[in-house]
Nucleic acid binder design. Sequence first.
DNA 1: CTTATATATGCCTTGACACGTATATGCTCG
DNA 2: CGAGCATATACGTGTCAAGGCATATATAAG
Lengths: 131, 131
Amino acid sequence: MEYIRSVESVFEIIAEPNRRAILSLLVSSQQSVGEIERQLRMSQPAVSKHLRVLRDAGFVESTVDAQRRLYRLKPEPLREMDAWLAQFRRFWSAHVDALERHLDRMNNDRMEQDRMNPRMDKKPPKKRKTK
Amino acid sequence: MEYIRSVESVFEIIAEPNRRAILSLLVSSQQSVGEIERQLRMSQPAVSKHLRVLRDAGFVESTVDAQRRLYRLKPEPLREMDAWLAQFRRFWSAHVDALERHLDRMNNDRMEQDRMNPRMDKKPPKKRKTK
DNA sequence: CTTATATATGCCTTGACACGTATATGCTCG
DNA sequence: CGAGCATATACGTGTCAAGGCATATATAAG
């Protein structure tokens, strides 16, 4: 019905294992469709379709070389993913990094008392027993 | 219950926008199902199902608080994502240093548009470049 | 011009999955 | 006990994407 379906997010793009494999392949150097096809043992149409998706999403770009197309990585979408991941980085590094461990503890303490939340249409029973 | 749904990869988990929203919510503090439901304006079953998926994949864990369940983040899967991204980090930082100027000059505008626009062009830029 | 090679695309089928509604489970309190 | 709240799960449904096969397009070579 609707055709407006476009590239939702970079995350949906890299959810596909074959596409991640293609990206990993391209890290080392640019590759033609046929080379990717052989190394990943997938059908040629499958490779082309994935590359199409990747290119539309800005993950790769291609140049023409005779009948071949050479695909190479583009950094922006991957940076975008990294940016999203950044909000959690502080959190997880706190679990290993001793320096940040106390930050984590502070945060946890706040969580414990942070039961009250803004914008509640109806208030839940406040009576609860923490075990 | 059902057949064992193997946790394919962390990437398929975070492909879902609502799940990403839940994770972003939890980065500040732990939350109950009801709180998530209200803040994200989704149905209660939807929240529960997403939390189920997130928990099976190790993104979150829960503790029982009376009739409520409090969910909080776990770092491992996010670290796993970061590890995968790492292989590209070298690549894209290289672009800042060396290649960026060149690429910027060539298609900075195009990159921006490719990422925002739904593709309605039937053909890729037909660039002639034979060697 | 004809054929081979390289890649892209259209159609079709299949399966996954997200959602809503309804219901089950579990806990608390009167 | 039973009522009520908080959360989990079952089931049916619609949407959508990935893959295979066939074919179209483009270039190269003979």
